[in-house]
């Protein structure tokens, strides 16, 4: 099972990538933990999570080809 992770703003800059693909994760919590291990900078950053463009709160199931986006605080306008 594949998950695409999109990074934006300062997170993309800190991690050094705008997109990462990971295999074998079935829920958002374990995915985020794995990401934080791989990219420790994420543990110190503020962001919300969207799955397939919907902002989630709490642990959420992933399906194959889910798109998970890590969104730092918005600063448009």
């Amino acid at each position: 099972m594949k998950t695409d992770i999109l990074l934006f703003g300062q997170l993309a800059e800190q991690v050094g990538a705008k997109q990462i693909s990971l295999e074998g994760f079935s829920d958002s919590e374990t995915l985020i933990k794995a990401l934080q291990q791989q990219y420790p900078v994420l543990s110190q950053s503020k962001y919300i999570v969207a799955i397939n463009q919907e902002i989630i709160s709490g642990n959420t199931a992933l399906s194959d080809n889910s798109i998970v986006a890590l969104l730092p605080p918005f600063s448009g306008g």
């Binding site: 934006f8 986006a69 969104l71 918005f74 448009g76 306008g77």
Partner: peptide
Amino acid sequence: KIKAELPVWGA
């Protein structure tokens, strides 16, 4: 709403 809710970032 645009400032608070749209996923847009300014550097």
